[in-house]
Design a protein around this nucleic acid. Structure first.
Length: 594
RNA sequence: GGACUCGUAGCUCAGCUGGAUAGAGCGAUUGGCUUCGAACCAAUAGGUCGGGGGUUCGAGUCCCUCCGAGUCUACCA
């Protein structure tokens, strides 16, 4: 028997067919509006009859009854169907249908196959993290990296070929000041000790020594021009800046489980901007025009961008990040043949990307280039206690490395404290404690960032970022560890096929509640994937872990009755599969013990 | 001035693109380990969804208008 992965999508199809079968007027216009329901009403509900009936002056309950009567036997077999209130149609999965779903999607491969339809055959480029070279990553860089990685994994799991691109800020006027400072004040010993720290120090000196309208600033500009013109000394310096920066970044990325496919920074596109200028001015009518000496694009149809220009070339002829971002969009389309481009930055760049995307759309249409989906995934700022954004140049910035270290330290304190409470034979070695603390600490930081809706700001607080209670990574990791523990004690592995063959349908309230939640994993994936908002997946996993914990307290798994034992072990196995799959999609590592 | 984001329990936040009696966590109170891991579970208390209008079968969600916070608004990225 075929079981659909996305039960809600399957129901939607059945209801549309039923509308035709039942002979509803204008059946093609009927949209079922199937969504996951409050569990007390059912698993799914269809609300579409209300709007449909209203628009046609029909009785919504009568319409709902017609639809329900026309549903195929397969739906009636799988669900308790009822009509409630003004005309909601409620669907509650029967235990046998729950069992069938759980038996059909019992491996990571089965889940991936089911989920892959969403973006099958597509290529998506995700541009995230994107720090500036020659500077350390600070707490403000965390969100783009963590959210971006989760989005990459979600897209890949839902079938896309994902290209992870770190669009480094490795070009621009700041390098003139950096070289100016470097040539005068660099300390070789400090450079060998911690290169990026030393680069940051000489940049600050260079910046301070080159105020506006000073001869020193002219000198810094000459260094930049020399770099742009290929001066061997400056080019070699610039290359070394990039290398040491990338090495430092990679240490952070390793801790966060991030591995980029490309590091195509702004410098990569520097020689591609001439084509942009040409193409934007060669269209009929031209997209770009000269205004106050600069090459700009206006968007007359837009309330603001009709007067606020998108500045693609500065009056002095130099490129800026609009130029390179346009070149970047073109490269990703032509070279990677991207079907979708996702850029993950904070919300303050909203205007820039709105203008960029408007311009790209018109430009690509004019040139008959394939146009990928363009998404700017924004997130709120991490602010200080005063509500103001944390800024790079004030002294109080928290370095990302320090944040991750602190997270591991706090987790370590908890792990070692818990460890002493365990029976001696069961205690972890010091080394194991350290490994567990690393996983728990980093996962906590990742989850804290992922679990809230990304569009709001938040005030940075150590306690919040590193909280280990409630809706946090440790709660989820703990559920995973407990399930592993049960399988260790049972002497079987979660993957054993025998668990499938001998399992029976869930019976107790806790079993049924857990099974119903498991069957909604596809909905969580769909919502998180379509909206590019990982917090929907976080919420689902937290609820799943909660249902599992309730089940774990209510129903003992390792009982003598082989029937009970088999079906509860199966539920444990599916919960483990779903939790681990979901947590890995978020970019978290999981543990078998903690 | 214009635009964008936000305002939900004492605190921190969800609320699935308009659905049923607005939900979690923390904190508070109460109960539960001789039984698979108590980093857990069960229960109680806590709300004028910033204010006011409107749209409709139905609004925390959409529209208008105030109030408050943050951000952007021509050559930094």
């Amino acid at each position: 028997m075929h079981v659909a992965f996305h039960l809600a999508v399957d129901l939607d199809t059945s209801l549309r067919t039923a509308a035709t079968t039942a002979g509803l007027a204008d059946a093609a216009a009927f949209t079922p509006e199937v969504r996951t329901a409050d569990p007390k009403h059912g698993d799914f509900q269809a609300n579409g009859t209300l709007g449909y009936a209203k628009a046609r002056k029909l009785n919504p309950r009568a319409t709902a009854e017609q639809l329900v009567a026309a549903l195929p036997a397969s739906v009636r077999d799988a669900y308790e169907v009822s009509i409630a209130g003004p005309g909601f149609i409620n669907f509650t999965l029967k235990p046998a249908a729950l069992l069938a779903w759980l038996q059909s999607f019992s491996t990571p491969e089965a889940l991936a196959t089911g989920a892959a339809a969403a973006h099958a055959g597509q290529t998506w480029v995700v541009d995230y993290s994107s720090p500036n070279t020659a500077k350390q990553m600070h707490v403000g860089h965390l969100r783009s990296a963590v959210i971006g990685e989760a989005i990459c994994r979600l897209l890949a799991f839902t079938g896309a070929r994902v290209i992870r691109d770190n669009h480094l800020g490795d070009w621009g006027t700041q390098f003139g000041k950096l070289i100016y400072g470097y040539k005068r004040w660099v300390n070789a010993e400090a450079l060998a000790d911690d290169a990026i720290e030393e680069l940051e120090r000489v940049y600050k000196l260079g910046h301070a020594a080159t105020p506006d309208d000073s001869p020193e600033l002219d000198e810094a500009r000459r260094e930049l021009v020399a770099l742009q013109n290929g001066d061997p000394t400056n080019v070699a310096l610039w290359k070394s800046f990039s290398e040491v920066s990338l090495a430092a970044f990679q240490k952070i990325y390793d801790r966060l489980g991030i591995q980029f496919d490309y590091h195509l920074g702004e410098s990569f596109y520097n020689d591609q901007v001439e084509r942009i200028y040409h193409e934007l001015t060669a269209t009929h009518p031209p997209l770009a025009e000269i205004s106050e000496g600069a090459l700009v694009v206006f968007h007359p149809e837009h309330p603001r961008f009709k007067t606020q220009p998108f500045l693609v070339r500065k009056a002095d002829g130099a490129s800026n990040y609009a130029s390179t971002d346009l070149a970047t969009a073109l490269y990703r389309t032509e070279h990677f043949r991207a079907d979708g481009i996702v850029v993950v930055t904070d919300f303050r760049q909203g205007d820039h990307f709105e203008q960029l995307f408007l311009t790209v759309k018109k430009w690509f249409v004019a040139k008959n280039y394939r146009l990928p989906e363009l998404h700017h995934v924004t997130f709120g700022a991490v602010t200080g206690e005063d509500g103001k954004a944390l800024k790079t140049r004030d002294g109080g910035v928290i370095k990302l490395k320090a944040l991750l270290d602190e997270a591991e330290e706090r987790a370590h304190a908890i792990v070692t404290a818990k460890n002493t409470e365990r029976p001696e034979a069961d205690q972890f070695s010091a080394e194991a404690c350290r490994t567990i603390a690393q996983t728990v600490g980093i996962a906590s930081v990742q989850y804290a960032d992922l679990s809230q809706n990304r569009s709001s700001n938040y005030v940075f607080s150590w306690d919040k970022m590193l909280a280990l209670d409630g809706n946090t990574a440790p709660y989820l990791l703990y559920a995973v560890a407990r399930i592993h523990s049960i399988f260790r004690k049972a002497g079987v592995t979660p993957a054993e096929l025998a668990l499938n063959a001998t399992a029976t349908a869930p019976e107790t309230p806790a079993e049924i509640m857990l099974a119903r939640k498991l069957a909604k994993f596809p909905d969580a994936l769909r919502i998180a994937g379509e909206s590019l908002r990982p917090h929907f997946l976080c919420l689902y996993l937290f609820e799943l872990a909660g249902d599992y914990s309730s089940f774990n307290s209510a129903d003992k798994v390792l009982v003598d009755d082989p029937v009970l034992r088999a079906r509860r072990l199966m539920l444990c196995a599916r919960t483990l599969l779903t939790l681990e799959t979901g947590l890995h999609l978020l970019g978290l590592r999981t543990l078998t013990r903690m």
